[in-house]
Amino acid sequence: MNKSRKLRRYLPLYLMALPCLIYIFCNNYLPMFGIIIAFKKLNFAKGIFGSPWNGFNNFKFLFTTQDAWVITRNTVLYNVVFIIVGMICSITVAILLNEIRSKTAGKFYQSAILIPHLMSWVIVSYIAYALLSNETGLINNSILKSMGKEVVNWYGEKRYWPFILVFVNQWKGIGFSTIVYLSSIVGISQDYYEAARIDGATKWQQIRYITLPLIKPTVITLLILSLGRIFNSDFGLFYQLPRNSGILYDVTNTIDVYVYNALMNNNDFAKSSAASVYQAVVGFVLVLTTNGIIRKVDRENALF
């Protein structure tokens, strides 16, 4: 009795959820049988299921390299920096945008900072190359030379690249991530700010005590989701942008770059599948752990 009443009560919600769940099932879950490719010695003549098992052999190439540590370190460290810097920058920009009263100016800024997001990495790498190259680069030839400074061999100097990568990643991504935070900030009721203003709160106090706490759920959600991708790296950023310059590999080589370089002569589905399973498993563990911790500390904001 109780059960059926409960069902009646929630049935409309389940029905509303259904179309999207069906889609996810078809689009994401049905193809998941493909994951077993990572554990197979693939032979399509026998079919994916009929192919012989291969244990963890397809994963081996990820660890046969001496650089296994370097690529893991780079991938994780860059991701951590990207997450932290990205969060600070996009929240700041979102708050600033929210302060702009002029509609035209606001729209202009928003459109402008979104432009880099619309360019492909290949194009970004061309632009960066136009700025940084030795022979024709604008920075060396128009700026450094005219200032009487020594030219820099940008693609040959490791120390600049951690900054360049973080900077370009922010530059390209900020327009997009700002929108996410902005949507959450503009959703905050004006009443809170009114009240705060009446109490004489400064701008900083308003941000500190109203805006930030109210967007905390969004921040935490995005944090958990980005931790899930901590073993993934944006291939375009780490491969195209440094133009595959070997000298820079200590600071630019990531798991995805390695997988690409190792498999580029051979379109090996099993190995590339193994690589993505490896990345996903680590991400999954991290998501579960983080979510578990958050659930202990702050149940409200846990993802699930």
Binding site: N28, P31, I37, I48, F269, F284, F304
Partner: peptide, 12 residues
């Protein structure tokens, strides 16, 4: 959330 992490690959 699982769909954000795992995918079956293009072949599947």
């Amino acid at each position: 959330v699982i769909t954000m992490l795992f995918n079956g690959g293009i072949v599947a």
